[in-house]
Design a protein around this nucleic acid. Sequence first.
DNA 1: AAAGTCTGTTAACCTTTGCTTAACGTTCAA
DNA 2: TTGAACGTTAAGCAAAGGTTAACAGACTTT
Lengths: 226, 226
Amino acid sequence: MDVNDFKILLVDDETDVLDFMKYNLEKEGFWVYTAQNGVEAIQMAKKMNPHLIILDLMMPKMDGIETCRELRNIPEFKNTIITFLTARDEDYSQIAGFEVGADDYITKPIKPRVFISRIRALLRRLETNETAGKITVGDIEVDRERYLIIKAGKEISLPRKEFELLNLLISKPGRVFKREEILSKVWGNDTIVGDRTIDVHIRKLREKIGDDYFKTIKGIGYKFDA
Amino acid sequence: MDVNDFKILLVDDETDVLDFMKYNLEKEGFWVYTAQNGVEAIQMAKKMNPHLIILDLMMPKMDGIETCRELRNIPEFKNTIITFLTARDEDYSQIAGFEVGADDYITKPIKPRVFISRIRALLRRLETNETAGKITVGDIEVDRERYLIIKAGKEISLPRKEFELLNLLISKPGRVFKREEILSKVWGNDTIVGDRTIDVHIRKLREKIGDDYFKTIKGIGYKFDA
DNA sequence: AAAGTCTGTTAACCTTTGCTTAACGTTCAA
DNA sequence: TTGAACGTTAAGCAAAGGTTAACAGACTTT
């Protein structure tokens, strides 16, 4: 599944916030659909079957919590990823959110880069067998919550891009990821970066983790192998 | 399938919008056809058999929804990708759109880059099933995902051209592929390579996999046989 | 605010690999 | 038998990737 096949439903009553998120997500190639309140959201969700729903907590009529609860009662949305959008310091709401079956929450104000990479991480769950925030392949453990990996008991922290690249490759060990695929999934759909960028990041990963884990398929891309 | 083989039908009553989209799509190498209303659209679609239809929602006579419904009733368009074109904030119409079998909608105003990448993503759906997955013939297994072949449990990795050549031949075991067919499918339509190039690659495959798998049909081409 | 650190990206250069070709040898069908 | 078609080999070349350092921008720290 390609980044471009992911459908995201945004639900927020503030048009500004909606537009801002939509703009940023579309720039990355996601399908974005919107709704302005809980009722609309549920209607829309039924029609388009989104992979991910981002729900604002504070909404008139039916708030995020309530909407989420209703969504979770509909069988086809049992496995849809639902994320809340909350103002910072609304800790209490977060707890309530997890109680009704949210997978994550995102705090406002939204910073585009962090926002996007968070969305990517969430959607990656659908593609892989990943259940929680961890994955172990061979002697490498990836802790997606803390942005670090553990090799032979030793913690290694990685910068965002390196981490996301590793995370992508390791999500399907052995499978070859084409360069363009890597670009679209880690960098974003319309990003234009130089030819050597991926290589450099691969090199850094090889440096930190070990040469043999990363195999080059010339003319195609890379794969992770234990 | 090449980008340049994709046929797109644009349907909109506003000539400006039509021209704008057409310009942007043709610049990318797509074949673009146009219609100004629903009736025309259906006529045109029957003639040219498009891969993708972009329908404006608001049109005189027969609107987008209605046109879509009619198209979906024609068997040959059951699998055609249909997308709506709608003004922002017409969320309700979007819902109606999905009901009649639309695959997506695109909001106006159209931003060229987002527009194009969205079209590409849609068309990618048509392509994906062609090259994915595994194929096993006799004791040879071709794993396209991992980009390697397995013979008697032993993994053999092949350079790109060799892999693609094997992949082509093995896709229809026993069938003879003409030299020119091999050239156009593995090397590309416009590539000009010498006479011996194919032979050399066949030789390498024979070396790595075994002589008897590849049969030469003199004057015609090659075939794969177990 | 300034200095310093950390990331991501690029440019320039180097290394490796796979593709192609040329030249010659072999086969096979008419 | 003979020549067109294919087989084989090694060598040259170009393309793809590897490597390094340097730089700009973001983020931290002081």
